[in-house]
Amino acid sequence: MAGSERAKMAAGEWYTCLDDDLEALRVTARDAVFEHNCLPPRQRGNLGPGLKALLGRAGEGARIEAPFHCAYGFNIFLGDGAFLNAGCTILDTASVRIGSGTLLGPNVQIYCAEHHKEAAGRQAGLEIARPVEIGANAWIGGSAIILGGVSIGEGAIVGAGAVVTRDVAANTTVVGNPARAVKRD
């Protein structure tokens, strides 16, 4: 794996997503996500079996409502009782850690991938992966977008539709685009 595109992605270096090995990993994730999204709710439970096996960690009682989408799955770590509502998308080119008791509203999007600023770099598939961390007992409102490299503190609230481009302190409420603090407990 040394020098591979996957190794570069994991190291937070520029890599090309137009790589056969990375595509094979995305196909595996798409299969697990398809199963999760298509199983009847009583059969699926909190997580479809393929998705549960794919995730980096699925804590006790963690739940993902269908439909759901992720890029790789193995970079997603869910704490105990974490809840992702319907329509969430996680482009987990880097680690995404969601703390225990944290709630994500419908259609929340987490984007770890950042494409190259130059057109030639984008055409070559160059991107860089930046991790996202969300502390315990946070609440991310519906349709919020969280960009790579962001940490959201324990107990924080992100308002519906907010675009989070920088860190959010613990027990702080942010809203808007770009998200800005409106309250600190």
Rank of each mutant, 00 (worst) to 15 (best):
residue 2 A to V: 01
residue 3 G to F: 02
residue 6 R to H: 10
residue 7 A to S: 02
residue 8 K to S: 01
residue 12 G to S: 08
residue 15 Y to M: 06
residue 15 Y to P: 01
residue 17 C to W: 03
residue 21 D to N: 01
residue 28 T to P: 03
residue 29 A to C: 14
residue 30 R to L: 11
residue 30 R to W: 10
residue 31 D to V: 11
residue 32 A to W: 04
residue 33 V to I: 15
residue 35 E to D: 14
residue 35 E to I: 02
residue 36 H to S: 05
residue 39 L to R: 05
residue 39 L to S: 04
residue 40 P to R: 12
residue 41 P to W: 14
residue 42 R to A: 15
residue 44 R to M: 10
residue 46 N to Y: 08
residue 51 L to A: 09
residue 52 K to I: 06
residue 52 K to D: 14
residue 55 L to I: 13
residue 57 R to Y: 07
residue 61 G to N: 13
residue 62 A to K: 09
residue 65 E to L: 10
residue 66 A to K: 07
residue 68 F to L: 05
residue 70 C to R: 07
residue 71 A to P: 00
residue 72 Y to T: 13
residue 73 G to I: 14
residue 76 I to M: 10
residue 77 F to L: 11
residue 79 G to N: 13
residue 85 N to E: 10
residue 86 A to T: 09
residue 91 L to N: 09
residue 93 T to K: 01
residue 96 V to G: 05
residue 100 S to P: 09
residue 104 L to R: 06
residue 104 L to G: 01
residue 105 G to D: 08
residue 108 V to M: 15
residue 109 Q to Y: 00
residue 109 Q to T: 08
residue 111 Y to E: 02
residue 113 A to R: 04
residue 115 H to M: 12
residue 115 H to F: 09
residue 116 H to P: 08
residue 121 G to Q: 11
residue 122 R to N: 11
residue 122 R to K: 14
residue 123 Q to V: 15
residue 126 L to I: 15
residue 130 R to H: 12
residue 131 P to N: 09
residue 133 E to N: 07
residue 133 E to A: 14
residue 135 G to N: 10
residue 136 A to S: 12
residue 137 N to V: 05
residue 138 A to D: 07
residue 139 W to Y: 14
residue 141 G to F: 10
residue 144 A to T: 00
residue 147 L to M: 13
residue 148 G to N: 11
residue 154 E to Q: 11
residue 155 G to H: 08
residue 155 G to S: 02
residue 163 V to R: 03
residue 167 D to A: 08
residue 167 D to H: 04
residue 168 V to R: 01
residue 172 T to R: 01
residue 174 V to I: 00
residue 175 V to Q: 06
residue 176 G to M: 12
residue 177 N to L: 11
residue 183 K to Q: 07
residue 184 R to A: 05
